[in-house]
């Protein structure tokens, strides 16, 4: 394993992580808090949409993100041949 390969792996990891954290921020702090009044003008069944993001939706997206990150990292591990 060359150190160049390892640093490319690290950059790819950081890019993936930042992408996931942007989504993490948007659903919770964005949809659940900052934009809640705007989103509350829309309905999801009996839920106001902003309220739904704050109490339900953000948690589902967090779940998806953690598994997505784990899945993509496993691919990156193999691609850069740094897996255990």
């Amino acid at each position: 394993m060359s150190s160049e390969n390892n640093s490319l792996y690290w950059q790819a990891n950081v890019r993936l992580m930042i992408m996931c954290l942007v989504v993490w921020f948007v659903v919770s702090f964005g949809c659940g808090l900052l934009l809640v009044d705007v989103l509350n003008n829309f309905q999801l069944g009996g839920y106001k949409l902003g309220f739904w993001f704050a109490q339900q939706g953000s948690i589902y997206v967090f779940l998806f993100l953690v598994f997505f990150y784990a899945f993509r990292m496993n691919q990156l591990d193999k691609k850069f041949n740094v897996q255990e």
Binding site: W24, G32, F51, Q55, F62, V66, Y69
Partner: peptide, 20 residues
């Protein structure tokens, strides 16, 4: 709605834990 801080706060931390 104000109680949402606990719901998001106590679950969103796991995203940080898993990635950081």
């Amino acid at each position: 709605y104000g109680g949402s801080v606990f719901l998001m706060g106590w679950t969103g931390g796991y995203v940080l834990l898993a990635m950081l």
